[in-house]
């Protein structure tokens, strides 16, 4: 069975390097947003505005899911051998 992973693994390193950088930039972006969400949720909860905490958690969880699925697209590096 051949899927996009095989093609990706055989792609030129220049290509997968770019892809790798893009993936990492998005992950860092996600983590940045999550830090902000946690900070805001916590500060508002301590100030007795607990309405913020739940949406912040949901958003954070969604971002985590995105980050997690994102890992599927990680290039596995150049494979010389034909087999997976």
């Amino acid at each position: 069975m051949s899927n996009f992973k095989d093609a990706q693994n055989k792609a030129h390193p220049n290509k997968s390097n770019t892809l790798m950088s893009a993936l990492i930039v998005i992950l860092i972006l996600n983590v940045g947003i999550q830090i902000w969400l946690l900070y805001t949720g916590l500060n508002n909860a301590l100030e007795d505005n607990k309405d913020i905490a739940l949406p912040a958690f949901i958003a954070s969880a969604v971002l985590f899911l995105i980050s997690f699925c994102w890992l599927y697209f990680l290039p596995m590096g150049y494979k010389k051998t034909g087999k997976k």
């Binding site: 993936l23 983590v31 946690l38 905490a53 590096g77």
Partner: peptide, 30 residues
């Protein structure tokens, strides 16, 4: 040549772990 992406792959996984940690933290706060 197969090792060129190992550390960046680890880094990406680590970022994902951090992301999960932050989500758990937000959940705790909520």
């Amino acid at each position: 040549t197969e090792a060129t992406k190992v550390s960046r792959r680890d880094f990406a996984r680590f970022l994902c772990l951090v992301s999960g940690g932050l989500a758990v933290g937000s959940g705790y706060v909520a």
